[in-house]
Every structure is written in C-alpha cells, then in structure tokens.
Design a protein around this nucleic acid. Sequence first.
DNA 1: GTTTCGGCATGACAGTTGTCACGGCGAGCG
DNA 2: CGCTCGCCGTGACAACTGTCATGCCGAAAC
Lengths: 201, 201
Amino acid sequence: MIRVLLAEDQALVRGALKALLEMEGDIVVVGEAARADEVVPLARETQPHVALLDIELPGGSGLIAAAALRESLPECRVVMLTTFGRPGYVQRALAAGAHGFLLKDAPAAELAVAIRRVLQGQRVVAPDLALMALQEGPSPLTQRESEVLAAAAGGATTADISASLHLSEGTVRNHLSSAIQKLGARTRTEAVRIAKERGWL
Amino acid sequence: MIRVLLAEDQALVRGALKALLEMEGDIVVVGEAARADEVVPLARETQPHVALLDIELPGGSGLIAAAALRESLPECRVVMLTTFGRPGYVQRALAAGAHGFLLKDAPAAELAVAIRRVLQGQRVVAPDLALMALQEGPSPLTQRESEVLAAAAGGATTADISASLHLSEGTVRNHLSSAIQKLGARTRTEAVRIAKERGWL
DNA sequence: GTTTCGGCATGACAGTTGTCACGGCGAGCG
DNA sequence: CGCTCGCCGTGACAACTGTCATGCCGAAAC
C-alpha cells in the first residue's frame, strides 16, 4: 500500500481528493493537514511515502512545508499541487525539493499515475508548465524590489511601504520604478498583477 | 438515484468531487462541465435533479449559469460552491435562483447532506456565511462605481478606464473617489482589494 | 411638482507617483 | 586594483491621482 499525506486547506477538496485516491485500491491516505505547519509533525507521526502539498496553504506556504519535509523526512517524496500555472512556482518548488508538480487542471486519472511515478524516483512536472517555466525564466527582480512590490500589493502607499521596510520614500519609489520597468508595466498596480501572474511574488 | 450535474473548472477537483459523491451510493454524476456556458446544454441533455456550480467559472460566472438554468430547467435545484466566503456572493447567488450555498472549506460529509436537503425543498446556506452576509449587507457601490472599480482592478490608468468606458477622465476620477470613500480606502488599489474581499466586484 | 438621487461633466487644487540624474557604500570578479 | 552590480539615498520635475465645488440632466419618490 502506498501511504499518502494530503495537505490542502479546503476541507471539501481535501475530502474529495481522499475519496479519489482511495478508489485506486493500493493507495491509503494516512494523514490530512489543512495548514502548512501541520505537515511535518503529521508526517513524522504517519510516515507517508508521498506528501501531496497544495502550494497555497495558511500557516506558511506549501513551499516552506516541502523544504521542511525534505529536512526531517528525506525518504518522503513530495508532490506539489496548485491551482494556477505560475511558472515561477515550478522553479521554487523544485528548488525546495519537490519531486512532482501538478496542476489542479490536470485530469483526475493523472494524479495516481504521478504518485506512482514519483515513488519510482522519477520527477513529474506537468508538461505545459515545464515549458512555460523555461520560457519565462526566473524572476528578474532583485530581493529588495520583490519586497517593495509585495508591500505595495495590498494597496499601501509609498509612505506606508517606506515605514514598514525602514527605507526613505525616494528609495521605495526607485525600487518600484525599477520593478515597473523590468516587468513592462506602467503603474505599480499593473506590476503587482504581472508579478503575481508569473508567480514572482 | 439522485442525478447530479457538476460544474467546476479544475479537472482534478471535479474528478475528486465526483468520486466523493458517488461513494454515497444513491448519487450519480450525470454530467460534468468545465465552463459556465456548457452548463445549460448539458443540463438539457442529462436532466439532473441538482446542479452543483462553482461560482468562479470561465465562460461567464456560475451566477450567470444559475440564472440561465432557472430559466430553462426550473425543476433543477441549484447549489453554489465556492472557495471564498465573499458575503456579496451569497445575496447574488440567492437572487440568481440558487437553493444552496456551500464553501469549499466545509467538511466533505456536508456536501451530500446539503444535496439531499435541497432536494427536499430546503434552502441550505453555510451558517457562518449567512451571518457574514447579513452583517456586511449588499454592495454600497452604484453600478457605475462598480464598473469603474472593476476596470481599475487590473492596474489600468484613469486614461485607460475613460477610454474603455467612454467617459471623461474627470468623471472616472469622481466615481473612483466616491468608491474609495464608500469603502473606507485611501487609494484605488486599496478600494479594489476591499471590494474583492467582500465579493462586491 | 418639488425633492432626491445617480450619472456625467468641468475646472481647480494639493498630494502622490514615476522618472531621471547624481552620488555613496559594500561585495564579487577578472 | 578597477569594474560592475545591487542597494540606499537625495533632489527635482512632469504626470497622474484624489478631492472639492459646481452645474446639468433624467428618473424615481414624496
């Protein structure tokens, strides 16, 4: 039997995925987590062969959970599961030690296939996503630019950002201006949208 | 047997929900739609007792599909299913003729229960959502304000909005200013964020 | 029939934002 | 070492944004 840990914040989807997996016969869901910080303790307790992690989880992202899992249970394979094909996520997920990366857009039959492949040591990435990831490349933003842009995402003003990051307003505007140019945007708002679409935020 | 139509854009989630429902024994999924505009034709063909509609669907929202379904198959009950508890959605969904409104946060067991209740003529709304909907009330924005705010959501400038809605720039700024005040925001970006959170966009 | 409200518009104003030029500091590199 | 690059800052300027006062129009409400 393949022992699977399931991390997904929406209970209904989590329950449905469990039903789907257990229809396979040779798969059993040994643990269910709704938050990122529940993953490692639960994995220690249940010793799964594979952890299926949603990338967007409360209590820290699935990426953090994947890295933590890699530390404490190196034997456990990690498959990331996510809604949007943000290409930036793929690189970050693989860097965090994930063995597979699936979209929720994929057909249901593919899930069990992916789990078996990953258990055999293969890396499984949704093909169109892999392509996109190669095309887009990694984020062109420096760390500071990302921070400033992230702070601007919620609608904060320049003054708000400068206060929260302990920078001068002029510097904040410079970083934003740089990010706007790199992303081909015309306003900070547009830059935020583009960065989010690409998974760079 | 209860005949169910399933509309959900993410194939994996759709397949998983189907597996969950069919575990019940007395429920059969007779149709699966990935887009809003597939719902009515598919329903005509498959004659379901209940349609389970995600609110966020490509090809028009689930709200539109619900209203169209109410027109062409009045016998068919409608249950909306959504990710976020945007209170504004509840009112709009009920106005569109939905009989139930569930969150994907709800426990998996609740889904079948809700379907059976709705079939018996009851209205089923997730209790915490109903409360929030009453607290928040409907959107305070006029139609024009909503349109302008929606156009601003993607990062468009005042000039862009005025062009796409055939208004003067001054008028756009007035509508935005009004929306910003009504929402208690300080910038258009913040107003967009607040309106989205409340389901008013 | 007068009042109220939403929509549309103009003009003016202060404040914010995006850009540019310029300089300084520290880290990595040939 | 000199060079580049990221980071931080300043000052200045044009453009954009948010607000306000004021006005006109049509529809709904009293």
